[in-house]
């Protein structure tokens, strides 16, 4: 490992738009999937990135890995700027940053055995001799809890949990410093989710890698993360310690998200947001959340709030009302969650 105190990952003001053309004669419009996202991640730390579909969390994950170039902003990995994707420098760096996907069956090749696929990153990056590679594959399989005989099996003959273990083993085989997990448990059954969460936490404890955990599941994010960032329409709207964010959410959107978590025995009254998650192609003015926000003011309709520390406790939040810059007719809902 190189570098010292510098953050493992430092992404600054990332923005990414997609052009969407409607029909053959239609005009193209730019859809801002990610709009000014900054995040930092230290070694041994897990950052949970939470949000609903279309909020840009998966795009952020791809930007951070350099799989897609940002339109604006810079990603620095271990103190150095991320090389452009496709260059050999980037390819070399990729062995230090790996990704775990949502659907293990799609992420794995049905025609190849699990062992071959786990060894693939070693083959691609030409790490070690064939004998060493074999050893490394066996070691990493043991680490994620796969039996040696699984190496010869094909993905479809494994259970969902075993498949996701194989995907994780493939990501870990090069001993990465950064692991980006994009909804790694949402395609799995509840009891298997717990196994994978335990596994990821154990692995991090052992290897000290940094982890970006992208999920819509606040419960899982609390379980695994040291810090959590909540995204809405391409921006981070709140960031802080998981317990602080979950128990005392500052942003009205986070409040609604937290109160929407179904939990056995939970009796607290629920904030129910009106309307659908907004369409990124049709972004509201000002604070993007204002059409669904129960405490929105006139300011919220016109001015986009910045993500900055709150005066009272230093919580980073992007909301005029939370910062006291706009007074609402209704006070922000005080929530007794859990």
């Amino acid at each position: 490992m190189t570098g010292g105190t510098a953050d493992l990952l430092d992404a600054c003001d990332l923005a990414r738009s997609y052009m969407i053309r409607r029909g053959l004669l239609g005009r193209s419009t730019a859809v801002r999937a990610v709009d000014g996202v900054s995040l930092k991640l230290a070694r041994g730390e897990t950052l949970g990135l939470v949000g609903e579909s279309g909020c840009g969390k998966s795009t952020t994950a791809r930007l951070v890995l350099g799989i897609e170039p940002p339109d604006e902003g810079v990603v620095r990995f271990d103190g150095a700027a991320m090389p452009r994707s496709g260059t050999s420098a980037w390819a070399t760096l990729r062995r230090r940053m790996q990704m775990v996907y949502q659907d293990p069956l799609q992420a794995l090749d049905k025609r190849l055995t699990i062992g071959t696929q786990i060894a693939e990153p070693l083959d691609i990056h030409r790490i070690g001799t064939p004998a060493e590679r074999e050893q490394r594959v066996a070691a990493v399989m043991a680490e994620v809890g796969l039996q040696p005989h699984h190496a010869g099996r094909h993905p479809q003959s494994l259970s969902g949990g075993q498949r996701q273990r194989a995907v994780i083993a493939r990501a870990l085989v090069t001993n990465p410093d950064l692991l980006v997990c994009d909804e790694p448990i949402s395609a799995l059954d509840v009891s298997i989710q717990a196994l994978v969460l335990n596994l990821l936490m154990d692995l991090q404890e052992r290897s000290g890698m940094g982890m970006l955990f992208v999920s819509h599941d606040l419960r899982a994010v609390r379980q695994i993360s040291h810090r959590v960032a909540v995204m809405y329409l391409g921006r981070i709207v709140e960031e802080g310690e998981p317990d602080a964010v979950l128990h005392e959410p500052a942003h009205p959107y986070t409040q609604a998200l937290v109160s929407a978590i179904p939990h056995p025995g939970k009796t607290a009254s629920r904030v129910i947001l009106q309307g659908d998650p907004p369409n990124p192609a049709n972004r509201p003015t000002g604070c993007a959340f204002h059409p669904r926000c129960p405490v929105a003011t006139a300011t919220c309709r016109t001015e986009t709030p910045d993500l900055k520390p709150r005066a009272s406790d230093g919580r980073r939040v992007a909301c005029h009302v939370a910062h006291g810059e706009a007074s609402s007719a209704r006070a922000p809902a005080s929530l007794e969650t859990c």
Partner: peptide
């Protein structure tokens, strides 16, 4: 469905 929409539907 998304979490906030799930809350709407259950409600």
């Amino acid at each position: 469905l998304d979490v906030t929409i799930q809350a709407q539907i259950l409600d």
